[in-house]
């Protein structure tokens, strides 16, 4: 079977200046994502989700194991041609307008001028940013900046879209919009990998999830097979909530 993304036994340990291990972020994780699937990478904070995503994007070099994106190493230019990335926070050049930002990323995706112009117009319309398209993004609200980031990720029409906490910090309406967008893109054949710790969001949009805990794979399966509540399943796999001693603190 053709997999859009195959992660095989990847390991990553962060080291300090003296090459001493500081954090074992990922300890031999394997999973694969079929083309057209919405795949959720779930786990508590510090479970290795972001490191895994960065390795999928070729930003972080794994210490061991292998990753292939449409059959290629993610560190190659060809593999990056088919990948879009939405980071957790909307990092952008504050001095560019939304249109210029999209034009910049269209250039990086090697789109010709005509295609780029057409696609930028479509994306601005899709994200509802036509009226603000010529204002510097430095003055945008968080939601607007998120929409620009989403449009930037989609401008190259990637085969695989990697989203790091796509709904983090968004209001309920924007969250719902993002979820609808994910479903629409998936229906159009795009493969989506999203990391999240918002289980309700994952349950709504994902076909398959893998749950990471302390850098290891705690569980993997289809959402439909995990019972009615993903949260209960998640807590059973990851462990109880931390017992904050609030009363003691307040006393």
């Amino acid at each position: 079977m053709e997999y859009a993304l195959a992660v095989d036994n990847v390991r990553k340990t962060y080291r300090d200046f003296w090459m001493r291990p500081t954090v074992h972020a990922v300890k031999g994780v394997s999973f694969s994502v079929r083309a057209g699937e919405v795949f959720g990478l779930l786990g508590p904070n510090g479970s290795g989700k972001s490191t895994t995503i960065k390795m999928i994007l070729g930003l972080v070099r794994p210490d061991g194991g292998s990753i292939s994106v449409f059959g290629r190493s993610p560190r190659t230019v060809e593999a990056r041609r088919s990948v879009g990335y939405l980071p957790e926070l909307s990092y952008m050049h504050p001095f560019l307008t939304a249109r210029e930002t999209l034009s910049y990323y269209a250039g990086l995706c090697d789109l010709d001028r005509k295609t780029a112009r057409m696609r930028i117009a479509q994306l601005l319309e899709m994200t509802g940013l036509q009226d603000a398209a010529d204002r510097p993004v430095g003055g945008y609200s968080k939601g607007m900046a998120r929409r620009v980031a989403m449009a930037s990720a989609l401008v190259g029409k990637p085969g695989l879209l990697v989203m790091d906490e796509p709904t983090s910090g968004l209001d309920p309406v924007s969250t719902s919009e993002v979820k609808t967008l994910v479903k629409t893109l998936s229906a159009a054949g795009m493969t989506i990998v999203m990391s999240s710790h918002l289980l309700a969001d994952a349950q709504d949009v994902c076909d398959t999830v893998v749950i990471l805990n302390r850098g290891e794979k705690a569980a993997e399966g289809r959402i439909a097979d995990m019972g009615s509540s993903l949260e209960e399943y998640f807590l059973a796999k990851v462990g109880d909530a931390r017992n904050f001693k609030v009363a003691e603190f307040l006393a």
Binding site: G58, V77, R80, R81, P87, Y91, L108, C109, D110
Partner: peptide
Amino acid sequence: RMKILQLTLVRPVR
């Protein structure tokens, strides 16, 4: 430092 570089590096550009 502003983490914008990673957005460029994930694109198909050498």
